[in-house]
Design a protein around this nucleic acid. Structure first.
Lengths: 125, 125
DNA sequence: CGGAATCCAAGATGATACTG
DNA sequence: CAGTATCATCTTGGATTCCG
């Protein structure tokens, strides 16, 4: 089977993100949303329950956590498994696709943390 | 000279992004803002003038473009050079630091575009 | 516990007009 | 051209309440 992901050659115009109607924009919006980034990074360490994520991410309301998780689930990045017991037990994890974005996003956050000293030094005002 | 960027070992808790008061959150917010991402990617291709950026990014108001550029400039990612002529001529480019984040951000957008087929296929609803 | 629903405050974004 | 200022709006995000 040949992969169907067409590789973007280095110099290929990958300017499609600039196209307003491009679905990429929508995905990008979900991924880079305020809580999307944090949730993806958190899930990179493995399966988490709702309340675990809530504690780990910190300062996120139930509403936004649920909402963001639903978006990520819709985009096929997050897997939601509900155990029908009482009290309810729901587990969230990354799909293979989610692992992919997760790596990219984690690379970004890692870069920022690693370069934070330089950044803070270069900051004006 | 030895680099002062301490490398994050694979398993190191790089959970500092989760700390609410961490400056990383602020930087991350700017970088992943609606227009921050697009602007950084656009500038990866070289110096641009204000109106060039405006046309390239697309659908961005003057206000938001100016505002986001100021944030990125403050964070030390973008260089602003104003030629005091009439009509005004201002050029924006990436600083070395900006090139760093730019690469991370571009990696993310590239990944999304490359995997868009898979993503759209996996999407529910 | 893990949400859904509602209401409301705050912030982000946009359209327009004006200026150096 | 490259902004700034102002005002209108639209979207986010949070607090609260209720339910299975």
């Amino acid at each position: 089977m040949q992969t169907d992901t067409k590789h973007l050659s280095r110099k290929m115009r990958r300017g499609e993100i600039f196209a307003v109607q491009c679905p990429s924009r929508e995905i990008l919006k979900h991924v880079t949303s305020r809580w999307g980034v944090l949730i993806l990074v958190a899930l990179m360490e493995g399966t988490h329950r709702f309340s675990e994520l809530r504690r780990k991410v910190g300062e996120v309301s139930e509403k936004m956590l649920a909402q963001t998780l639903q978006q990520l689930e819709q985009d096929g990045f997050v897997n939601r498994v509900s155990h029908p017991v009482v009290p309810p037990h729901v587990e969230y994890s990354l799909t293979p696709l989610g692992l992919g974005v997760g790596q990219q996003v984690e690379a970004l956050t890692d870069w920022i943390e690693m370069n934070l000293p330089k950044i803070m030094a270069a900051r004006q005002s």
